[in-house]
Design a protein around this nucleic acid. Sequence first.
DNA 1: ATGTCGCCTACGAGGCGA
Length: 258
Amino acid sequence: MRIATWNVNSIRTRVGRVVDWLVRSDIDVLAMQEIKCKPEQFPYEAFENAGYKVVLHGLNQWNGVAFASKIVAEDVEIGFDGMPQFKEVSEARAIGATFNGVRLWSLYVPNGRTLEDPHYSYKLEWLEALASRIGEQVYHEPEIPLALMGDFNIAPLDTDVWNIDDFAGATHVSKPERQAFTAFEEIGLTDVIRPLVPTGYTYWDYQQLRFPKNEGMRIDFILGNDEFASRVTGASIEREERKGEGPSDHVPVVATIS
DNA sequence: ATGTCGCCTACGAGGCGA
């Protein structure tokens, strides 16, 4: 089974590219982030014509997460128990579903904006609540393969950004954010891509020629529990998808599991 | 270069988010 995660940055703008890539890459389950639409605006037909079913959580023009899969999604969960709100608004940042017995989450972690912004503390609280909720699941049902997939908006290592000196005082690399990321290791999840693809970015800003200069960030991850990780037989970061007409600013990250 | 995208409203261009 081939599983991928991709922050598509508007599915309506990029449906052709996304479906073409899915088919060409023989993907069974795709976790998408930033679909940026409500359910009634989602381009279902293009996916269905290619043999993919879609489940999604989208509230407005911001955020929005989804799965497209050849396999039927079971036990779909919108948000997670204890998910923090921002100013009493519950945002569309998490959807969970089971595919052939594999529990997957498509996650769009809050950006944080700046270290002083209310969105920064919201980001940390959101991550802590997620680790707490998933930690219970991993502890009580270790036999179920599980993976968190998505845009974490954290660069865990200094080498996950093009020049760490440019990130002094910035989000994505701060110690509290990196500690929040480490918490997922503490509950028993590991990055299943890094051992197989040790280097490479997953995101390049549209501005300032970031992609031609290869000034990117590695912020999109697939974190699996032991049962999931033991089944991983391959991984890739699809850098080619940042090229050409109308790319997302993120590229797909793929895991093959037995 | 404050250098780009994509969404919204509401019909042109500014505001917001990343």
